[in-house]
Design a protein around this nucleic acid. Structure first.
Lengths: 134, 134
DNA sequence: TTGCCACCTGGAGTGCGCTCCAGGTCAAGG
DNA sequence: CCTTGACCTGGAGCGCACTCCAGGTGGCAA
């Protein structure tokens, strides 16, 4: 099975070496295999898990929740329903976040358009005056 | 013109009193009018600006950038092109964020589905084994 | 006039998620 | 062998965006 040095993993995942060590220290990664000399050797399972971590992190899951998920994963197949529940909960949160982002982005677009109208008219015409303020 | 007490503004906007004072202190709000006794009295313009701040904050703009935008707004109509540029830049960032969130959410959905398939099969059948790992 | 509560100020503290550092170890190339 | 650079550990430090606090003031209601 393929193994990877810390710097290879950093390159592949975008996590820094410090972050990788940090995640391991707090228990987000489980113990990583070592060489006889004590150097970490990551394998494909580790990379897979790191991908999951990255996905959850990038969607805004706090580390505490990821730790909970990691713990469930470590505790065998009986926890799968709980894992599903956790992910569904998170999925709903992400859904809301996306929706909120979309509405806020619309506001930004409106504002940009408002500025464009203002500059084209060289002043604030009534047609445009009731747009977003300031 | 309608005016509002700090707690009314907090209720309307969702910002805490401390956050309102903090934003004022760092220059994100400009000086808020005061009563003779020194109490803040916010007006509708302030609320409008706070709405903008909220929109930018919720879409992930760092305070430093909002300060820059606030400064442009204070410096008259000549800065409107710069404001547009800043907002367009931000808009693009938000766009990317939404796109990334969507792809990551897809991964989460896949993972949930994968867990469902696993539990239904009571083990990992080959049909499902090449899905997302761990 | 006296409570009382909302509000004021400046400054210190908090939580999160890393990031940096000092001082040491391991292993491959020359 | 010796150098060199990637890696090790434990712990301290950082940047952001607030949040809390102590000690004091304003103004309305009873």
């Amino acid at each position: 099975m393929a193994t990877y040095t810390p710097s290879q993993v950093a390159a592949k995942t975008g996590f820094s070496l410090d972050t990788l060590r940090y995640y391991e220290r707090i228990g987000l990664l489980g113990d990583i295999a070592r060489t006889s000399g004590g150097r970490r050797t990551y394998d494909d399972d580790d990379l897979g898990w790191l991908g999951m971590v990255q996905c959850l992190r990038d969607t805004g899951m706090p580390i505490a929740d990821m730790l909970r998920f990691a713990e469930l994963c470590r505790n065998g197949d009986d926890t799968i329903p709980e894992r599903i529940a956790l992910l569904e909960q998170h999925d709903a949160t992400v859904q809301e976040k996306i929706a909120h982002l979309n509405t806020q982005q619309q506001r930004i677009s409106n504002k940009i358009q408002w500025y464009r109208d203002v500059t084209r008219a060289d002043d604030v015409p009534s047609k445009v005056a009731d747009s977003a303020p300031v």
